[in-house]
């Protein structure tokens, strides 16, 4: 028995030392990424006056650089493709923890999927994995049940298979991130023809997911507590505005927050030349929408 205990102890000790070698992969993983926005948040390099949060609609349709020029506020886009409102809440919390409080936050709404089940919108765990060397991120991965508490003690339990990359990740060809964090579609070319749809979409409150509503309310609360001016933006789709959703959405807003809805009578939002697909604008459309948002912000400030 003594021999067994001794050997096990020795083996565990050797393992504990050897497995620390895995830290190398944890360490180099952030450098392989081309999108360094989240790491910059963690490093406290995201001290902006206006921040845009959202999913791909926020990333492609709103140009933070243009917002900065038009409003005079130092702006940055922190929208992530395929992210949901829970991820936006996480980003906001992280931003507030490590950076100066922004004056304004724009939250871009995924109409009508903001609060209901939608496979393409999720908590972007994959954006957290390359940064798991940071304790804050590891804690979040444990909260998300992607990692267990062993990851506090073992590098191998903290690392993920996606960390074993040897090549740098290249930016996407069609919508690379610009220096303001936006990723508009720069090549104005359709993969297929689009037909504007007038059909009225339904919206059922019963389909709403409580955890998404909770995250949404938490964003409003966080902004309220930190005196941040929160503006919700409903960008255009290449189909009619779902007014049922808008009506429902208004009920979830607290009084101090503002809602901007794109100019529904502007004919460019019915012109396929401005749309990459049914849900995302090309850069020419993004410029128009961003300009509308800038006007809205300036007008709101002047009131």
């Amino acid at each position: 028995m003594k021999r067994f205990i001794f050997k096990i102890t020795l083996f565990v000790s050797v393992f504990f030392i050897v497995e620390k070698g895995v830290y190398y992969f944890l360490h180099i993983a952030p450098d392989k990424e081309y999108d360094k926005r989240l790491e910059n948040i963690l490093k406290g390099n995201m001290n902006k006056e206006l921040v845009v949060l959202g999913s791909s609609k926020g990333a492609t349709d709103i140009l933070a650089g243009q917002l900065e020029k038009e409003t005079g506020l130092i702006s940055y886009n922190l929208s992530y493709q395929g992210s949901n409102v829970v991820f936006h809440e996480f980003l906001l919390k992280t931003l507030l923890k490590y950076n100066e409080v922004p004056k304004k936050v724009i939250l871009v709404i995924d109409i009508p999927y903001e609060f209901i089940e939608e496979k393409t919108l999720k908590f972007r765990i994959d954006r957290l994995y390359p940064l798991s060397k940071y304790n804050y991120i590891n804690k979040e991965l444990i909260n998300q049940k992607e990692k267990n508490i062993l990851s506090w003690f073992l590098c191998s339990a903290r690392v993920n298979q996606s960390n074993f990359k040897f090549k740098n990740i290249k930016p996407p060809h069609f919508n690379p991130l610009d220096e303001y964090g936006s990723g508009p579609y720069i090549i104005e070319k359709h993969s297929k023809d689009l037909d504007y749809s007038l059909k009225k979409e339904t919206y059922n409150i019963k389909d709403e997911l409580p955890y998404k509503i909770k995250a949404f309310k938490s964003i409003q609360k966080l902004c309220g507590e930190n005196s941040i001016e929160l503006t919700f933006v409903i960008p255009p789709n290449f189909f009619d505005l779902n007014r049922r959703f808008v009506k429902r959405f208004r009920k979830l807003l607290t009084d101090e927050n503002k809602l901007f809805v794109y100019d529904t009578v502007n004919p460019i939002y019915r012109d396929e030349k401005y749309f990459n697909d049914y849900s995302h604008l090309f850069i020419n459309g993004a410029k128009v929408l961003t300009s509308e948002i800038s006007d809205f912000i300036i007008n709101s400030d002047n009131k």
């Binding site: 895995v22 992607e146 267990n148 191998s156 339990a157």
Partner: peptide
């Protein structure tokens, strides 16, 4: 095992 262990 550690790398791939997440949620049980």
């Amino acid at each position: 095992i550690c790398v791939f262990s997440g949620e049980e």
